[in-house]
């Protein structure tokens, strides 16, 4: 589904990652762990070309999504970003109603009649429907942080992405909301390829099918024994080149 080939990224003279070659299997959860400043966010944003607006951001090599290099000049970035959704560390809801927030990315794409169904469907997927079904017209800013993060996830799901990038989605949340989000990604993984960034080993090992570590500009599979080894983690091992195994 996603493949980095000899990929390097830099801000000006400052190299963030160098010569990465690895891939992520489809329909599974991959966790990416690494210290703060190690380039996790940069790598995620690269996958949906969110760094395009940053002037001194440079890349080399290629990033393939569904076998197509997303940095080709003829890439439709808007279509790419609909296919590869990203959830940021801090939830950012628009100062509009809950309904309007959920529908924000598809308002021009689906008819008015379909909108309520789409809203209900994705709010159910993120386990938020029961909490907000009677107050869809209220401002989304009145929700708690945890609810807001689930709302942004619903907003992204409404666009029907195939890939979900989650950048430390629970780091600003309380334990209960964290558990809710961890549980809900499990239910999403059979239809989405998920890349989950975290700096907590325990979280990575409990939620993910395979864990990657980013360190000194390199990405490699986690080598300590996994709490829950699965076949797909060995698959990732094979996919990572230059790994010392």
């Amino acid at each position: 589904m996603i493949r980095f080939v000899n990929f390097s990224a830099a801000f000006g003279e400052r190299n963030i990652v160098q010569d990465l070659t690895f891939s992520l299997p489809a329909n599974s959860i991959t966790a990416l762990i690494g210290a703060s400043g190690s380039g996790k966010t940069t790598l995620l944003r690269t996958l949906c070309r969110m760094n395009d607006r940053i002037k001194n951001f440079r890349i080399a090599g290629s990033v393939l999504v569904d076998g197509v290099d997303i940095y080709r000049p003829e890439t439709d970035v808007y279509a790419l970003r609909r296919k590869v959704g990203i959830i940021f560390q801090k939830p950012c809801v628009f100062p509009k109603s809950i309904f309007d927030n959920v529908i924000f990315g598809v308002r021009e794409r689906i008819s008015r009649r379909e909108q309520p169904d789409r809203v209900e469907k994705v709010l159910r997927e993120v386990f938020l429907w029961e909490e907000v079904k009677d107050r869809l017209g209220e401002k989304a800013t009145t929700l708690s942080q945890g609810q807001q993060q689930r709302l942004t996830l619903a907003r992204t799901l409404a666009v029907e992405p195939q890939v979900l990038l989650m950048d430390e989605p629970t780091s600003s949340l309380d334990p209960k909301s964290t558990a809710a989000i961890e549980r809900l990604v499990q239910s999403l993984k059979n239809r989405h390829t998920i890349l989950w960034v975290t700096h907590q080993h325990a979280q990575a090992q409990s939620i993910a099918d395979q864990v990657l570590v980013i360190e000194r500009g390199q990405v490699s599979p986690l080598r300590t024994p996994m709490a829950r080894p699965s076949t797909s983690s060995t698959q990732v091992l094979q996919n990572v080149q230059g790994c010392p195994e």
């Binding site: 959704g85 924000f104 992204t156």
Partner: peptide, 9 residues
């Protein structure tokens, strides 16, 4: 950024 991430032109 939020709008961009949703693929808005």
């Amino acid at each position: 950024e939020a709008g961009m991430a949703l693929g808005l032109s």
